[in-house]
Design a protein around this nucleic acid. Sequence first.
DNA 1: CTTGGTGCAAACCTTTTGCACTTTT
DNA 2: AAAAGTGCAAAAGGTTTGCACCAAG
Lengths: 167, 167
Amino acid sequence: MIPRSARSSGAALSAEGALRTRGLRSTMPRRVILDVVRATDTHPTAAIVFERVRRRLPRVSLATVYRNLRRLAAEGLLRERVEATGLRFDPNVGPHDHFICVACGRILDLPRREGARRGRAALSRGEHVRTAARYGLEVIDRRVELYGRCRNCRRRGGPVSGLWRAT
Amino acid sequence: MIPRSARSSGAALSAEGALRTRGLRSTMPRRVILDVVRATDTHPTAAIVFERVRRRLPRVSLATVYRNLRRLAAEGLLRERVEATGLRFDPNVGPHDHFICVACGRILDLPRREGARRGRAALSRGEHVRTAARYGLEVIDRRVELYGRCRNCRRRGGPVSGLWRAT
DNA sequence: CTTGGTGCAAACCTTTTGCACTTTT
DNA sequence: AAAAGTGCAAAAGGTTTGCACCAAG
């Protein structure tokens, strides 16, 4: 949905380099964890990341995976998202929204309408921000999720699965 | 933010009546649980609901509170929301968005721009839906959360607390 | 050598489940 | 009387923490 090349701001840097810029020690588990999430476009859970990291480093512990995912998110190298199924991690740290297919469960990244512009100014427009401003609220960030059916599921007329719990 | 009178569609009905309309048995714990959440505008967790229900019915169990909150949400009498801190329950089942103050943690309901209209048609407009349509996605519902500082916190210049984990 | 990171196991918390008993219809 | 709901206790996730050992700067 979002061109791969633009997905992760700073993804141009190797894991090694990205860690350096944040003053984080470059340990083997940490590098692999970051690499694994970056190779992803499905917002993996900690368990999924753990499983994949283990293929490369059979001795890592789940605790290490959690500690690092949290840390990497805190440093802005990943984005953390709370889902009904648990925590998920997104290598795309730029501004974008999500579409969740209620038939197949897939999560798609959606570009922001104002995505072309940069910084705080990008948020000065848009209906939500205007609505909030009317109440004296200062908007810093936002989270938008659309629920529906993706192109494939529409085509094959897939039903809305039980996966769709209220948002 | 949203007038109390319009907060819960169907809130005009007593808990008793609301349960009837869904074919749910009207048991004492169930009525009190619904009443407690309805008396709320802070999206309480199950634990909070449990504590308040217990003041009126000292013998209820946490399991009963969970079972009923879930059931009431499934029947559309409450709305269930997944937060970092756990499940939260919202008596406002009409379409609305949320504003979360990153300084004090308060959650405010925001009316939808198209709130005046009704049904599926209400969603046919808006930037997100248009964006999604461009990708062949059919939008059924959406969840919007704005993060920022509320009027009070702006006034007293409160800092953005550590409460603000990435969304 | 010092600081920070790691593995392991145990602890934690929130949510769910099995079962015998009670209440609603 | 049948069906649905309840309390209790135990189980089940998913995530965090304490601690002794190890590695990076």
